[in-house]
């Protein structure tokens, strides 16, 4: 699994639950190092064992860990770049949902080695009900995506209901009901980078 994904997991656990918890998880998971490097490639088992170990230590389900991580990646002030890059997808939450089809290619443009799952938006703008289908070799991205989508809906100020359906076989689905696209004031977003030389992440 790419270092960016592992590093995101580490940042989430470390920022949310403290550095000692992260050290405990890293040790418990049997990693031979303390920190993931975001530009390295790691064996897949490491990611899974880290999630399982963290779930055990925090007495939460692995699904909750993944979903909370997704929310964290968009909403935490410590990680600004992902939220900004996702906001390039469009001016409204529906535009953003449509841009998910491009996410795989966009991620590849930025970091060619990064293998995200494919996301496909199905549904109809007219009645506001959508489904996001997520397919890829790693099961669990859908859970993280659920957290990302919840946080992005808040970011756009949209009121939505979402539900996760894991169908197995590397196939996950999230159903989305858009109740109101401008329910609250969203967060400000400007195309201009606040600091182009330091793309966001601290």
């Amino acid at each position: 699994m790419h270092g960016l994904i592992n590093r995101s997991l580490e940042s989430f656990l470390s920022d949310t639950y403290g550095a000692p918890l992260w050290r405990d998880v890293a040790e418990g998971a049997g990693l031979a190092f303390e920190h993931f490097e975001s530009m390295f490639e790691y064996e897949d088992w490491m990611t899974y064992v880290v999630i399982e170990t963290a779930a055990e230590r925090l007495n939460k389900s692995p699904d909750t860990i993944l979903e909370d991580m997704g929310t964290y990646l968009v909403s935490s002030p410590n990680v600004k770049s992902l939220r900004r890059l996702l906001r390039f997808g469009g001016d409204s939450f529906v535009d953003f949902l449509h841009s998910l089809d491009d996410l795989y290619d966009r991620a590849k443009l930025a970091v060619p080695e990064l293998e995200l799952p494919m996301f496909k938006l199905l549904g109809d703008d007219t009645d506001g009900s959508f489904r996001v289908v997520c397919t890829g070799p790693h099961f669990g991205f859908g859970r993280a995506m659920l957290g990302v989508l919840r946080a992005m809906a808040d970011d756009y100020g949209a009121l939505v209901f979402m539900e996760y359906h894991g169908a197995g076989d590397g196939f996950e689905e999230i159903s989305i009901t858009l109740v109101q696209s401008s329910f609250a004031d969203g967060r400000d977003f400007s195309l201009a980078s606040p600091d182009a030389s330091n793309g966001g992440r601290q």
Partner: peptide
């Protein structure tokens, strides 16, 4: 907009590489 996205995504990735 694609270009702006690319510039920002690339500088974020480059920033990580520089730190590494």
């Amino acid at each position: 907009v694609e270009m702006l996205y690319l510039i920002e995504a690339k500088s974020a990735a480059m920033n990580e590489s520089h730190k590494l």
